[in-house]
Write a protein that binds this DNA or RNA. Structure first.
Lengths: 177, 177
DNA sequence: CACAAGTTTCAATAATTATTGAAACTTGTG
DNA sequence: CACAAGTTTCAATAATTATTGAAACTTGTG
């Protein structure tokens, strides 16, 4: 990578670096750590599998950080281990099918943001009260609406996760847009 | 609020406090500040409009924090000003229609998370390259897929934002679930 | 215009979250 | 079992983000 070249057409290496940076920024606006997003981006644009060592080097992050981040990506299902016979070192490849990637991300975010909330809401909504009391009425109405909404969102997301490629691109897209 | 009562049925005040707490926690897992979510929750369950003073007091936050948070909620469109003739002080009410609330939230998050990203992607995807090069092929394929996905998400979200109450609850929900 | 009653701004600080890096651990091999 | 080649953990630290609170500002009224 020679950033000294101020050519109007950036080199592939520059473009890749920009993509990794972009994905990192987007990641933060999303609630995942910048590093997680960057490691993911790096693996997405790497044709070959990379080792922890490669990742550390290319993103200049510490070994600990690389190790934990890769583990989290494996956890999300966004990255696979690739073991090479006779080698001790582990290599990692990203899931390249973006529909699959989307499913993983929806699944993880739904679990983190929605499912947890639904549980708490159910408890609160069960609270009995005096319907003559304005405070109670507003509280109860708000809670009920939020619950309904959470239920619909849940169903929508679940449906999207199950979506087949064909359904997603054809039925869904063409019928509804 | 007397938290000394260990009655199995919590009082309304306790339930409201729990709700505000819950919304605050959910808010953080979402990427908005805890305070923002809590002020929103407080206003959602308050039948009457509240002043900055009321909010500061009920959530024990500073004046500056309350002021900035309320301004941000106005910005999102989640809260309205209520001016009372002859009074200097400003009061605030939350938008109570949760479908409307959802629209506001989708709009804000889409702007923050998606639109920004699309702009950067378009730039990167325009990059020409050598199709014989594996690095380039993988890079280009990934970018194209992400762009398609971003476009579909954009359309889906836009559609959801325009959704009428009836469409949302009937057509959409019943046809697709 | 001076004052009262409020609101907003923003530098300093507190709280939270991410990262490092060295030590502990794991695992395959002679 | 000792060692080499790796991986993981986690306390300390750095970086980031949210909050405070006092000073500056705004606005309506006598």
């Amino acid at each position: 990578m020679q950033p000294t070249n101020s050519n109007p057409v950036p080199s592939l290496a520059e473009a890749r670096a920009q993509f990794i940076h972009l994905w990192g920024v987007s990641g933060s606006s999303w609630g995942v750590s910048k590093t997680l997003a960057q490691v993911h981006a790096l693996l997405l644009v790497s044709p070959a599998a990379l080792s922890t060592e490669d990742i550390m080097e290319q993103l200049t992050i510490s070994r600990g950080n690389a190790s934990m981040t890769v583990r989290e990506l494996l956890d999300w299902g966004l990255v696979y281990k690739e073991l090479r016979p006779g080698e001790r070192r582990e290599y990692f490849v990203a899931e390249k099918d973006m529909l699959q990637v989307t499913r993983c991300i929806i699944r993880a975010r739904k679990r983190r943001e929605l499912d947890q909330m639904k549980r708490s809401l159910d408890q609160l909504a069960a609270l009995p009260g005096d319907p003559a009391d304005a405070e109670y009425r507003v509280f109860h109405a708000t809670l009920t609406e939020i619950q309904q909404l959470a239920t619909v969102s849940d169903k929508l997301l679940t449906r999207l996760m199950q979506a087949e490629k064909s359904w997603f691109w054809n039925t869904f897209l063409k019928l509804f847009m």
